[in-house]
Write a protein that binds this DNA or RNA. Structure first.
Length: 523
RNA sequence: GGCCUGGUAGCCAAGUGGUAAGGCGGAGGUCUGCAAAACCUCUAUUCGCCGGUUCGAUCCCGGCCCAGGCCUCCA
């Protein structure tokens, strides 16, 4: 069994076979950088991150490109409204600042870095060249210095999204532009438009359309092709990109690159905000810092995994909280395993079967080789069952909900089979690595570098600076807990409770367990 | 008008032509100085409604009802 994905182009599940068996080429439509990333983007980009992580888990190399649309009327408008209204290049500053927060927000959500982040304005030459070719091949026409794509010149127009030309009702959405009188068909779209003196502009060297700026759709086509070649494996964005954006991209690209331009089109669904429309005019756009002030990144990641990517995700703080409640069981198991492993000597916790990280390995071998290490020890049978379910779930069009269900059952088995009592380091280590390795696939990077250095090396390290302080904090708390244990031994429960209350007020929850007190940071 | 989803327990949410994963919540229990937490067990004779195909349908087909998305702003 191999990975299957739902291809929007064919509306079917298909075996995922990259053109080049060694590298998967993925292009993701990124932000139009006129305002910061919000929770909707978070779902989309977290999905693409999990997709990439799973491919890597499967032993594939992934070449992923994401773009910034940094030239757009909304950016220009924002710059015109801002404090430095009218300043030359103000639109670039708007773009720069949004890009910076985007990168920061992605890292906070542990979205792995892309191989390249392309900017539309860095590829204007390629865009001009594409427009030129489309004109030459009769797929575009010029009206008053503006270049339009002629949809009627492309018979397959509408195949990707299902919005065929004869089925479309122009203006049904109430958003038809004002160019109707100049277009040959209402669905024709802008490839290049002239700029007024105060708008950013590029010279083309063409007499009929001498200057101006690119249309939205041509940007992505030019960037994707420039970075990934005339044909590549996966192109995506969220569902809203399907039409018109991706449809138009196909129409522009296939006359020049051939069909199919892209092997697999994938479109994750939106958030379902339960009737509430998130929009800037309503002032209810939830940004990433806001989201992260209410939920930890790993809770958000686990929450995203709770619903299939092609299903609308019911979103609310309460739902995330409910999901996080269940997630505690997983993290608790990881923590218990780590604690018990740390308690034994380094030598004793050595894992007999080498567990090497999968990349650089042929896809067919990657999982079996890793499995050997995971399946070792007393939890072997449970681990085997878990691995089978996890891989089967993810192979079936990234079935994260089933993958998480498998993990819940696995953790249940670990507890049932003596997670808290069995004293065999290799067994504990195998289970620890198995859990953290698979959480990592789902975007949860909870791993102790000492216990699983190979995996830790692949995590977005954001805690480096805090490590030393954290160790000191840990020592202080441990001393307080030692004092409390002393009080309990001498039956001075008032003092013991006082220490517990003090820690609680400081945000440290203490719980008594058979082996001694445990603590964790709480909000 | 065209295209497309989805309606599964109080809530979220998988899924299969052979009789319903998982999580939250709820109910018991174990442990505990007390707490809290944790762990264990239980929690849909039923999958919007009506027909049909079938030995058998939640899953296939037809009709109906309801909710939602897209048809050039949108992740």
């Amino acid at each position: 069994m191999a990975l299957q994905v739902f291809n929007t182009r064919t509306r079917r599940l298909e075996a995922f076979v990259p053109a080049d068996p060694h590298v998967v080429r993925i292009y993701t439509c990124g932000l139009t950088v006129y305002s910061a990333m919000h929770i909707g983007h978070a779902r989309t980009y977290c999905f693409w991150d999990v997709f990439r992580r799973y491919l890597e888990y499967r032993g594939q190399h992934v070449l992923s490109v994401i773009n910034y649309t940094d030239i757009d009327d909304r950016i220009i408008a924002k710059a015109a409204d801002g404090a430095d209204a009218g300043a030359p290049g103000g639109w670039l500053e708007v773009a720069e600042s949004v890009i910076a927060t985007f990168r920061r927000d992605c890292r906070a959500l542990r979205i792995k870095d892309y191989a390249a982040y392309t900017r539309a304005t860095d590829f204007v030459d390629a865009q001009i060249d594409m427009v030129r070719q489309l004109l030459a091949s009769g797929h575009a026409y010029v009206v008053d210095g503006e270049v339009f794509y002629d949809v009627q010149s492309f018979p397959r127009y509408g195949e990707l999204s299902g919005n065929t030309l004869d089925g479309q009702q122009a203006g049904a959405s109430g958003r038809v532009g004002e160019d109707l009188d100049r277009k040959r068909h209402p669905a024709d779209f802008t490839l290049w438009k002239p700029s007024t003196p105060e708008q950013p502009t590029w010279n083309t060297g063409e007499a009929a359309w001498p200057q101006g700026r690119p249309g939205w759709h041509i940007e992505c086509s030019a960037m994707a092709t420039a970075m990934l070649g005339r044909h590549f494996d996966v192109h995506g964005g969220a569902v809203d990109n399907l039409f018109p954006h991706h449809e138009n991209e196909v129409a522009q690209s296939e006359p020049l690159c051939g069909h199919p331009w892209v092997r697999y089109w994938m479109h994750p669904e939106h958030l379902d905000l339960r009737g509430v429309k998130m929009s800037k005019s309503l002032g209810n756009v939830i940004g990433i810092p806001d989201l992260l002030s209410r939920h930890r990144y790993d809770e958000i990641r686990w929450f995203f995994a709770s619903t299939h990517y092609r299903t609308k995700l019911a979103f609310s703080d309460e739902l995330i909280d409910a999901c996080a409640e269940g997630f505690k069981r997983i993290t608790r198991a990881v923590k218990l395993l780590a604690e018990r492993l740390r308690a034994v000597s380094p030598q004793a916790r050595a894992v007999p079967v080498r567990s090497r990280y999968a990349s650089m390995r042929a896809p067919e071998q990657a999982i079996p080789r890793e499995r050997e290490a995971f399946e070792h020890g007393v939890f072997g049978a449970a681990t085997r069952a878990f691995l089978d379910r996890f891989v089967a779930a993810m192979d079936a069009d990234l079935g994260c909900p089933q993958a998480t269900a498998a993990m819940f059952d696995y953790v249940g088995e670990l507890f049932a089979q003596g997670l808290e009592t069995i004293d065999d380091p290799p067994s504990l280590m195998a289970a620890y690595r198995c859990l953290t390795r698979h959480l990592h696939v789902l975007g949860v990077e909870t791993v102790d570098a000492e216990l699983y250095p190979e995996l830790a090396a692949d995590c977005l390290a954001t805690a480096d600076e805090g490590t030393q302080q954290l160790a000191e904090l840990r020592a202080v708390i441990d001393r307080m807990l030692e004092a409390r244990a002393e009080a309990r031994r001498s039956k001075d429960f008032a003092r013991a409770d006082a220490i517990r209350d003090l820690l609680k007020r400081a945000g440290v929850a203490v719980e008594d367990a058979p082996g001694g007190a445990r603590w964790e940071l709480v909000r």
